[in-house]
Every structure is written in C-alpha cells, then in structure tokens.
Design a protein around this nucleic acid. Structure first.
Lengths: 151, 151
DNA sequence: GCTTGACCTAGAGTATGCTCTAGCTTGTTC
DNA sequence: GAACAAGCTAGAGCATACTCTAGGTCAAGC
C-alpha cells in the first residue's frame, strides 16, 4: 500500500512532463505563469517549478476557454478569482456563465455568416452547370434563406 | 428614364462613402487593397479610388469570411481567383466549401469545449448551495456528459 | 484664386499571444 | 567530479491584423 508521500511523489511533475501531458511547450507554460494563469505553482529546493495532476486539468480548462475565444486578460481575471478561494465562487460562476453566453452568441453569428457562403457555393454550382452567371445575387439568396429557412 | 451613364454615376462611390456603408475605416479599406482583397477598383482623374455597389457586397462577404476565421492570406487567394474570371469557378467553389467544412468543425469543437464549462458552472452551483466542494470533478462531469448526452 | 474637406502614399505604431534565444544553474549518472 | 539533460530568468523576436500619422494633392464652393 502506498503512503501519502509516495502518492504525493507520483503527482509531482516538473515542467517538461506537464508540457508533454498538456501538449504545450515549456516556454508557453512559463509564459502562462508570468501572465498570472497558473495558480498554486510551488518550487523545489533547486527553484524548479513543481506541478500536480491538478495543473493538467487546469491547463485543459485554460485551453478550452482560449479555444472558445476567451482572452488572456479574462483568463487572468478568472485565475485571480480561483486564487482567492471559495469566497469568489459566485463571481467565478458568473464569469463562466457570461462566457458561455458569448460563445453561443458567436456560434449564432457564425451560422448566420455562413448563409452567404452557402448561397455563394450554390451560385457557383449553377454558374458552372449553366455556363452563364445566374441572375440572382448570392446576397439576395442569403437574405431569402434567412427569411424562409424552411422553404 | 435613366440612361446607362446616370446609373453608373449613381453607383460610383468614393472611399469615404464605402467606408460608411461597410462600417469600416478608410484606412482599413485602403489596407485591404494593398493586401490584394479589393478586385476591380478603378481611379478617377484625380487618382481617387472609385467603387460601386458591388464593393459593398464584396466587403460584406469579406467580413463574413473574416468573422468565421478565414485569414487574410486565404481571402487574398480567393480574391485572386475572382480576378481570374469564370475559369476559376471550380476553385472558388472548392475554397468556399472547404471553409464551410472548417467552420462547422470549429463549431463542433467549440460545443465540445463548452461541455467542461457547463460542468464547471454546475459544479460551482452545487458548491455554493452545499457550502462544501462537491466530490465529482468538473473534468469527470464533462466526460460523463459527452458519453451520455441523453442521460 | 483661395479655403476647406476628402483623398493620396509611405511607412510607423499597436495589440494580442505566443515563441525562442542567450547565458547561467541544478540534479543525476557514471 | 565531469558530463549532460533539464530547468531557470530576462528579454528579444515574430505572426497576424489592423490603425494611425505625416506630409502632400485635388476638387468644389465661394
């Protein structure tokens, strides 16, 4: 049976290992720390950064938030809240919920923007098949599509 | 009844007007031109750029493609194809269709990334209501959500 | 013909988010 | 105790996409 020290040792990771597990470079992880995005990083006697499994999950969250368009500035705000402990729970929840709303709005915007691209593709198809430029402009077509999505 | 010259005159726009109509700055529109993103721009006797209604629609398309993540480099490729005339129709269609696929893939990726944020929000809710940190990690919760979306 | 506003070119500056280099220290292995 | 990998800090460099400045030109109204 493993004792607490052994378990602790198993989840103590140096920067190279956490870089490998998170798919980032060591440079990026150190830069994240300078930007205030890495809570609870301690150092060993040789001043090396020591991470745990927690940080693998943390970097996963950071990646997802970045991927969905959250800026480094906002990630810093969120990280600062996490560092404050459980008193900041309502604020953390609000920050993430606001982000969710923004992402859903962005998806709606993208979907809307794609209507014109859809229309362009169809327009090109007709043009290629018919050999002549179709009369209806893709802009008009996109408007039609939006107003009558089920037609 | 309007003759061809009058119609032409009506749709002849200077850069300030097209900036106003497209919601961009004149700087940006000139910069787009240097980047090869403005096909068919002619000059008047005083070397001023002359646009038409076509360019308003063009800038709308550029905006939608940018918004959905297309890079300036790819917009340049697309514009170059448009400048080549109808011989490039199959390539244009392919470029736009590939972009559509990328956007749909991106939306799927975003939706997937949001599962963890959803889980975090629920986790915070429980934590706030219960006063103690819930046992299940948001990472675990996100995994559960993905594998059993209907549970 | 002079003022005024819009336009012109060339190029510098900015914001964001990394990404890498240089030069040095530390821990481990033989 | 020497070699070597991995880590450290400070700071430079880079890609993308604008955004703006400086210094001049042009057209239209008075």
């Amino acid at each position: 049976m493993m004792d607490a020290r052994a378990t602790q040792a198993l989840s103590a990771l140096h920067i190279g290992e956490i870089a490998r597990r998170s798919g980032r470079s060591v440079h990026t992880i150190r830069w994240y720390e300078t930007q205030g995005l890495m809570p609870g990083v301690v150092r060993d006697r040789g001043r090396r950064r020591v991470y745990s499994d927690y940080h693998v999950g943390w970097l996963d969250l950071m990646e997802r938030l970045r991927l969905t368009g959250m800026s480094i500035r906002q990630l810093r705000e969120y990280t600062a809240l996490v560092k404050q402990g459980s008193a900041s729970l309502p604020k953390r929840r609000a920050l993430l919920a606001a982000h969710q709303l923004r992402v859903h709005a962005m998806i709606a915007k993208w979907t809307e923007a794609l209507t014109l691209v859809d229309a362009k593709v169809e327009f090109y198809d007709e043009w290629m098949v018919g050999g002549v430029r179709p009369a209806v402009s893709p802009q008009q077509r996109a408007r039609d599509k939006r107003s009558m999505p089920k037609a």
